[in-house]
């Protein structure tokens, strides 16, 4: 039980996927303009990361590794992820059409969100077992949600600020992200026993 707690703290705060590992930056910058879309994107990413961790783990350990084919990991994983994203897309179009249109082009692009492929590959390199992989996927997704919501809160305020023209748009967002990232460095000081 304690281990799950530690895994959660590590994945969400200490090794936050966006601020520390630099995974999933494109949607982080792209869909953080409004809080509502940011939350929707975050939840879609949590779902995709959890499901794809759960699906890629058995594929690696039961299908590829027994035949010494682990160098096919990348190709096999990306196909699974593409299928999962397609599923999420169909579900959202049917059940939450408003969110579907708000996410727009970024929804199919979850396929190319490096956080999702990253989690599948990390689960293999870290040698996690099935339960740990799924939890790691879920909590890393939560870390992504936290990061993108924090940034969207900042961005809703930046809109009203008087910013020098060359810095308008993406540059000021990156600088805000830099400051958020400095705040997250504080968590590195947490020494966890593992």
């Amino acid at each position: 039980m304690m281990n799950i707690f530690l895994l959660a703290i590590t994945a969400v705060l200490i090794e936050n996927f966006v601020f520390v590992k630099f995974l999933g930056i494109c949607p982080f910058i792209g869909v953080s303009k409004k809080i509502s879309t940011a939350v929707g994107m975050g939840i879609a990413v949590i779902f995709t990361m959890t499901v794809s961790s759960a699906l890629t783990w058995p594929v690696h350990y039961f299908l590829l590794q027994p035949f010494d084919l682990s160098y096919f990991d990348t190709i096999a994983f990306i196909l699974i992820i593409a299928a999962v994203v397609q599923l999420v897309e169909m579900y959202l179009r049917k059940c939450i059409p408003s969110l579907y249109s708000a996410l727009g082009i970024y929804l199919p692009l979850i396929t190319t969100n490096c956080a999702v492929l990253g989690i599948s590959l990390l689960n293999v390199t870290k040698g996690y077992n099935f339960i740990e992989s799924v939890l790691y996927g879920f909590f890393s997704g939560v870390g992504f949600l936290l990061a993108i919501v924090l940034l969207s809160l900042v961005r809703e305020r930046i809109k009203f600020a008087d910013i020098p023209t060359p810095f308008r748009g993406v540059p000021i967002v990156l600088i805000a992200a830099a400051i958020l990232s400095i705040a997250f460095m504080g968590f590195q000081g947490l020494k966890l026993p593992f």
Binding site: F19, V20, F22, T165, P166, F167, R168, G169, V170, P171, I172, V173, L174, I175, A177, A178, I179, S181, I182, M185
Partner: peptide
């Protein structure tokens, strides 16, 4: 700090600002 993660965001932000300045 520049080679830590936050430095990456910072440098990229300033470089893109410079590019936008030149474009304008």
């Amino acid at each position: 700090i520049m080679i830590l993660p936050s430095g990456g965001f910072l440098v990229l932000g300033f470089v893109i600002a410079a590019v936008q300045f030149v474009q304008r």
